[in-house]
């Protein structure tokens, strides 16, 4: 009697397919730009990992804000509009998972680069430690989601998301006073910062490509989560209807007797 849990065959809408195709094209072009950019003066070809490290690192500080915004919206709509609240929650999960994905890639590429540039895989400086904490917090967020009781997940994770968002800046400032080793901010970090103009196209194209890819993965995950919510609602509703149907059947039996 579970027929109402079946959804219509899910296909990606046309605009999503076009977006995916565009994203893949930009990714390929970004890869070409990264490989065609001139060799760096001191590090040679090794520096090319930078074109992947920078977009992932920057974007993994953008997705947590989307997660935070969705969490606030969830708390706002929780009592007012259940359907919108569920959508906000689905968006929050999707943003958190993309955060973990991008932060993991950012950490991995950063470690590869650190090994080449500093000779060590890891240093406990402000940026690295804060970044690791960001990664830990969002892994915790996903873990908490997986262990919390079904009806509570959304509320608990929304509150946790707000605490995580408050924690990151405090942590960054406090560790900055503790010690610092990461190079000064590449953009807007003082007179000597910035990149050589010849590398700009590779940085920009890769930035755009990974942002588009992140948006695509986020949208896909959101759609899947929405479908899961609808399926579980439909299932719960189906069980309820079965129970009323069974009760009605039992009642009619009683009357027939």
């Amino acid at each position: 009697m579970m027929k109402n849990t079946q959804q219509a065959n899910g296909t990606m809408p046309t605009w999503a397919r076009i977006w995916l195709a565009l994203t893949l094209m930009v990714l390929v072009y970004g890869f070409y730009q990264a490989m065609a950019a001139p060799r760096e003066a001191t590090m040679g070809n090794l520096y090319r990992v930078f074109f992947y490290h920078l977009p992932h690192a920057i974007l993994s500080f953008v997705f947590p804000y989307l997660n935070l915004a969705a969490s606030f919206l969830y708390l706002f709509w929780r009592r007012r509009n259940v359907e919108r609240a569920a959508a906000a929650d689905a968006f929050a999960v999707a943003a958190a998972e993309v955060t973990v994905l991008y932060a993991s890639i950012g950490l991995a590429t950063g470690m590869l680069w650190g090994r080449a540039a500093w000779g060590i895989w890891w240093a406990w400086d402000a940026r690295l430690t804060t970044y690791l904490l960001l990664w830990l917090l969002y892994v915790c967020y996903l873990l908490v989601r997986s262990v919390s009781a079904t009806g509570q997940t959304a509320m608990i994770s929304a509150v946790l998301s707000i605490f995580a968002a408050i924690d990151i800046p405090i942590c960054f400032m406090s560790i900055r006073w503790w010690r610092t080793q990461h190079p000064a901010a590449v953009f807007g970090g003082g007179a000597n910062s910035g990149i050589d103009p010849s590398m700009a196209p590779a940085v920009i194209w890769n930035m755009v490509a990974w942002a588009m890819w992140g948006a695509f993965v986020l949208g896909l995950r959101y759609a899947i989560e929405r479908r899961r919510q609808q399926a579980s609602n439909a299932q719960a509703l189906g069980i309820l209807q079965d129970e009323t149907a069974d009760a009605a059947l039992a009642h009619s039996f009683e009357e027939a007797r």
């Binding site: 904490l133 830990l136 917090l137 915790c140 873990l143 908490v144 262990v147 919390s148 009781a149 509570q152 608990i156 509150v159 946790l160 605490f163 995580a164 924690d167 405090i170 942590c171 406090s174 560790i175």
Partner: peptide, 23 residues
């Protein structure tokens, strides 16, 4: 209080509290 309504609350508390208390 938040982890009261979760399945394994004894593991959940350190999981949330440790990263949040880091600073």
């Amino acid at each position: 209080a938040l982890s009261l309504r979760t399945r394994n609350r004894d593991t959940l508390l350190p999981l949330i509290l440790l990263p949040i208390s880091m600073p």
